[in-house]
Amino acid sequence: MKNILKLLLVALLAAPVKLAAQMPAVEMADTFRQDGKIYVVISIMAIILLGIAAYLFALDRKIGKLEKKD
């Protein structure tokens, strides 16, 4: 009896979630993600960011050397 009550409670709580899942889905780039193409985008953005970071670090060091000279 207790178990059945528990099950009923879970089913009741889960009902709105199921209802939400049945609503017309908003279009997202799901296929694009499944193909794994999103990793291409991430790699490219990461390369650009890291490239700019390396450039800034190099600039930082160059200015540091000039400061030491004075």
Binding site: A25, V26, E27, I38, V41, I42, M45, A46, L49
Partner: peptide, 16 residues
């Protein structure tokens, strides 16, 4: 960049 592109986001019309 990584988590922002991979993570879950709300599915909203117009915004997608």
């Amino acid at each position: 960049i990584i988590a922002g592109l991979l993570g879950e986001v709300p599915r909203l019309v117009i915004l997608n």
